[in-house]
Amino acid sequence: MEFFSDGMHVRLQNRMHDAYYLHADEDGEHVSLSPRRASLNTAWRVHCVRQGGGGGGDGYVLLHSAAYGRYLALSPEQVSLVYAGYTAVQAAYDAPEQGDVLWEAVRVADEADDVLMLHISNRLLRAAPWNPVLPSRVYVDMANAGTMMHWVVEPIPLRQAPPVLPGPTELPRGVVLQRTIIYMRANNQGTFDPLDRKMYAFYGRSLFHLTGDLANQLRENFHQIMLCVRAGSQGRLTPLVIDLPADEQPMEIVVFTTGSQAALTLQHPDVDAT
């Protein structure tokens, strides 16, 4: 795959809205454009797959957020009754044959650095027309939208060491978020049994509080565990290093031992690199 290699981290910069990047929104559902280049929410990790018979099949690019682990996907619902496009969303990857997360990168003629992100439905990822008042959503559409459909793939180097985790945070007064946390313990080689799982109700968004909760549940030291999220049974593990999305969707967490062989293989994009 010419523009993407499996496991690399990238940003997708929109050619029309030059200083804006594909962004996994904090609500855990929507995708927008953002100028926050140094944010983990504008970093995506490449997951290459092949589908089809005969041991070969067609190659597809999947992108999962380096912030929350969820995959760039096509919503099943149209944006509106008058607009035939569909919204780009963040979704779990739960089945090998799941089509809403499958993309291909197609070179734009005469533009060496630009690609079209072609969904398996034969629609293209595109920026919405600019509106300073409304949220800048991202659509998937068949109609030609010119350079709003052109994306520049920007590789992100890796950090030499994991980032420092955020301190404890609280929700604004009057806001309540409750989600189910499903957690599994990995051994030092990173192996875990997906059927050996436990769950509990977690309140809030704080990664610090979640780490403390799981340390207590597992009777381990707070500083000796690190958490990864898995967005669906086919999703790849993503290290959690920022607070959780502002939604109430269940989250699957795999707990690693800090400094273990498996933990040292986890990759962190250096979003601050120039």
Results as ranks from 00 to 15, higher is better:
3 F>K: 14
7 G>L: 01
8 M>E: 13
8 M>W: 01
9 H>R: 00
17 H>M: 07
21 Y>Q: 02
28 G>C: 03
29 E>T: 06
35 P>A: 12
38 A>C: 14
40 L>M: 07
41 N>F: 05
41 N>M: 03
47 H>S: 11
48 C>I: 15
48 C>F: 08
55 G>K: 05
59 G>N: 12
62 L>C: 09
67 A>N: 03
69 G>D: 02
71 Y>K: 00
73 A>T: 08
74 L>N: 11
77 E>K: 15
82 V>L: 15
82 V>K: 15
89 V>P: 03
91 A>Y: 10
94 D>C: 06
96 P>A: 05
102 L>K: 11
102 L>C: 03
104 E>W: 08
107 R>W: 13
107 R>N: 15
115 V>E: 07
115 V>L: 10
120 I>K: 08
121 S>M: 13
125 L>K: 08
128 A>G: 12
135 P>N: 05
138 V>Q: 04
140 V>E: 09
144 N>M: 13
147 T>N: 10
150 H>G: 06
150 H>R: 03
152 V>C: 14
156 I>W: 10
162 P>T: 05
163 P>E: 09
166 P>I: 14
167 G>N: 04
167 G>V: 09
170 E>V: 13
171 L>M: 08
174 G>P: 10
182 I>M: 10
187 N>M: 15
188 N>Q: 14
201 A>I: 11
210 L>W: 00
213 D>I: 03
217 Q>A: 07
218 L>G: 02
221 N>C: 14
223 H>Y: 04
227 L>W: 00
231 A>Y: 00
239 P>A: 06
239 P>D: 02
240 L>K: 01
242 I>T: 04
242 I>M: 08
245 P>N: 05
245 P>K: 04
248 E>F: 00
253 I>R: 00
258 T>C: 05
263 A>W: 02
265 T>Y: 04
270 D>A: 02
272 D>Q: 10
273 A>Q: 11
274 T>L: 15
